[in-house]
Design a protein around this nucleic acid. Sequence first.
DNA 1: CAATGTGTTGAC
DNA 2: TCAACACATTGG
Length: 341
Amino acid sequence: MDCSTDDQSTTTETISTVAAPVTTPPLIGSNGSVVIDVDGGLEAESRKLPSSRYKGVVPQPNGRWGAQIYEKHQRVWLGTFNEEHEAAKAYDTAVQRFRGRDSVTNFKPLPVDTEEAGLEASFLNSHSKAEIVDMLRKHTYNDEFEQSKRNFSLKKCPLSDGFIRSGHGQQLVNAREPLFEKTVTPSDVGKLNRLVIPKQHAEKHFPLQSGTTSKGVLLHFEDVGMKVWRFRYSYWNSSQSYVLTKGWSRFVKEKNLKAGDIVSFQRSTGPDKQLYIEWKTRTGLGESNPKPVQPVQMFRLFGVNIFGSTSDGSCNGKRSNVELELLGVGSCKKQRIIDPL
DNA sequence: CAATGTGTTGAC
DNA sequence: TCAACACATTGG
């Protein structure tokens, strides 16, 4: 509908589906009660739509299924689908891009550190939310992902001349996956020179070897400006908490971190496992954010998103999605604005 | 006219 | 945040 013409699915799908008033008892009866109803006089069609058993999936009047995800109090429409599970898949994809790898999904209980999982993480994180949403709405996500994978295999096989083919697939190099965020407390930015890392996240993402718990280890993080920060990371028995100590106060000082600000940690999805640290002021809007440091380079946040590689020769074209989003030019019409990453 | 997806509301 | 529901908008 919007700007494109490549809605291959719609054409075929529509034809077959619209035939009947579809009451949609296709797959599993699941929610038997809702769908089937007591038959008799009231057709399901006339009133209550069958609610979906999947998260982020809503029924459409015509028997199809819509997928949606919420962010910042606003709904982001992910498109409509013939099958309930397709919509659920779309939601799963979106939620992983919007909220990280280990979000609650409809299907994926399977994500592990398989290569496939890593590739998908790379793919997701190397595209803006708007791009992913666009792919979902056009039902081109799988194709794009497959293509990305093909490009990736090229990268894994350096050419004889020793160079690695660049161009597409390059985004995989810099892709990062979010690990976790923390809203810093007054003491995190005070004079204690330490950042408490929520146990839950610490143990999951920064596990310490039993012997090094108290001694700690040195962790290297890179910030937007590609500056490297080294922090001592250890476990304090006294408070039974994981902390970043030595080096932390310098970060606080340089970034002018204030209580309430948010520090986020990412890790490269590549084999290098490089760690990254970022910060931002409270998510809220309105507030004027002085943002002293971290100027223009925000545009290259994480160095990804800059490689269009889209094949949807439509409105989005291949403009840097970052640019699109900053300009508030969603995909086409009045798409809501989705901030980069 | 049918399908999409936004406006809106209330439950959680 | 999230889904239910109504219906304005859209596109053929």
